[in-house]
Write a protein that binds this DNA or RNA. Structure first.
Length: 272
DNA sequence: AACGAAACCTGCGCGC
DNA sequence: TGCGCGCAGGTTTCGT
């Protein structure tokens, strides 16, 4: 489901409801979401409090007092839902974890495809160990020439290189298509044919796309929603999902192909 | 080391 | 109506 803007929306929403409340219960219905011993996680959570919410690329991070850190990746369909105990909405088969707070609020981790994963770390090393140590910089934090140095030897399609989170963090299938369209670059161009100037232009356009998406609350194409927040960036998409429709720049019909196993939308006239 | 394919899961829409 | 297939905003693992 979510790429950087959507995860940032989730982070902002969670920050409003979970900070500085004691966790008094933790129910588990599908333990495989957690990488590790789920009973150890419960021991750490009970009595603990989230003091800060961070985000790195598509990773959501709960910073607890007691120096504990929970890293959460939503993958395709993960969601956090906030409920009051008195709501007595019953669990669905896709609700896997329930965090219960001392003010009666419950945070439900819901994930239709069960792809999401969580890791427990300590504050001293969570940035130095998997998975965050392998993450590249976000576009807005990249220096001139940085993306070029990451990809100039790679003999893979530029789209595949941009989806690789160790090269550049935060882009997914939607925003890569949009970024490459703005950059006038064909998604199948080999990364090792991209010039330094083109790589810097890609980085610039990625910043623009992600910033605009965040301002609009992210993109809701299929199922993404952060609580009750539905993004509006889908109304601004230039090529992604636009197969057989006219290019907004030149009116050529947008094509859909498969690149790196992912549905890919582009304009063959604008993107070379 | 690098790259492509399969795997992890479930639901939905489509054609027959 | 029922069934099989393809597809889905992601990452890890396996095989070459």
């Amino acid at each position: 489901m979510p790429e950087l803007p959507e995860v940032e929306v989730v982070r902002t929403q969670l920050e409003k409801v979970v900070l500085n409340k004691q966790i008094i219960g933790f129910d588990v219905y599908y333990p495989d979401i957690f990488n590790g011993d789920i009973n150890r996680l419960r021991e750490v959570l009970i009595g603990n409090e989230v003091i800060r919410m961070e985000r790195y690329g598509k990773y959501l991070v709960f910073i607890f007092k007691n120096d504990d850190v929970l890293i959460s990746h939503l993958r395709m369909e993960g969601k956090y839902l906030v409920r009051r105990i008195e709501d007595e909405k019953h669990l669905s088969r896709h609700d896997h974890l329930v965090f219960k707070f001392d003010d009666g609020m419950e945070l439900w981790y819901h994930d239709t495809r069960k792809f999401g994963r969580m890791d427990l770390r300590k504050i001293d090393d969570y940035l130095l160990t998997k998975p965050l140590n392998a993450l590249g910089n976000e576009p807005k934090n990249m220096q001139e020439g940085e993306l070029y140095r990451k990809i100039y030897k790679k003999n893979v399609p530029i789209k595949v290189a941009l989806l690789d989170q160790s090269n550049i963090a935060g882009l997914g299938n939607i925003y890569v298509d949009e970024t490459l369209f703005l950059s006038n670059i064909h998604p199948e161009r080999k990364a090792n044919t991209i010039t330094k100037e083109e790589a810097d232009f890609i980085t610039l356009n990625a910043v623009k796309v992600l910033d605009k998406a965040l301002k609009l609350g992210g993109t809701t194409i299929r199922t993404f929603a952060a609580g009750d927040i539905h993004g509006r960036f889908q109304n601004e998409l230039l090529v992604h999902t636009k197969a057989n429709m006219p290019c907004p720049v030149c009116n050529t019909i947008i094509k859909k192909i498969i690149v790196g196993g992912r549905g890919t939308y582009f304009c063959e006239k604008c993107q070379k």
